[in-house]
């Protein structure tokens, strides 16, 4: 298991994603620490979750340059959080931008492709996931988080297999949401396999 940082916009489901990763690590008998953004900052603001594995982790927050894996729910948030990634670390990123109201108010939209290009220039392994497409396929706006986890697992950087992840999802989520989440998980995994 590895150190992992998740970044996104409030409401995208980063907290559940970090809980699922932590659960997988605990099932492997590892000591886990996580830290999340909760409260005022979560409403449409930037949110970051830290997941640390191993007894030597003192701080709940990852030090800069120490994450093996960055799972970003949004292209600009990937760039914002990139300083946490260690050299040679992996980025799994959603290609779907979330336009902040501040940008829309100026009558513009920010350029997600510039963010993705910056990631490719500065990281060795970048897995791009079309979460909007997967959400449409699975007929749910709420499965982007599990799709990204699926991609992270299949990339090998999470240190957990898609099957282990599936069993964690099965235990954590209510029955009626399981099928769509399973589909999203493997659609994400497929995106990572195609990348390779």
């Amino acid at each position: 298991m590895k150190n992992c940082i998740l970044a996104g916009v409030g409401g995208q489901g980063t907290v559940l994603a970090s809980k699922l990763i932590a659960q997988c690590a605990m099932e492997r008998g590892e000591f886990v620490r996580t830290a999340e953004t909760i409260g005022m900052a979560q409403r449409g603001g930037c949110v970051v979750s830290h997941v640390r594995v191993g007894e030597d982790a003192h701080s709940p927050l990852l030090p800069l340059g120490s994450a093996d894996l960055l799972i970003a729910f949004e292209p600009a948030e990937a760039v914002r959080t990139l300083p946490y990634l260690k050299k040679g670390g992996t980025v799994v990123v959603s290609t779907t931008p979330v336009q902040p109201v501040t940008v829309s108010l100026s009558g513009k939209s920010y350029d997600a492709s510039a963010m993705l290009a910056y990631l490719r220039q500065n990281c060795e392994q970048v897995v791009e996931v079309d979460t909007a497409g997967i959400c449409q396929q699975c007929s749910s706006q709420k499965v982007a988080n599990v799709a990204l986890l699926g991609a992270a697992a299949a990339s090998g950087a999470l240190g957990v297999t898609p099957e282990e992840l599936e069993s964690a999802v099965t235990r954590r989520l209510p029955e009626k949401f399981l099928e769509m989440n399973r589909r999203a998980l493997y659609a994400g995994a497929k995106a990572a396999e195609q990348e390779e």
Partner: peptide
């Protein structure tokens, strides 16, 4: 010393009413 490549300008994302 940490070398930081200059990232593109990032959108500001203050918390908002849902």
């Amino acid at each position: 010393q940490v070398d930081k490549p200059q990232p593109p300008e990032l959108p500001i994302r203050p918390p908002v009413l849902c």
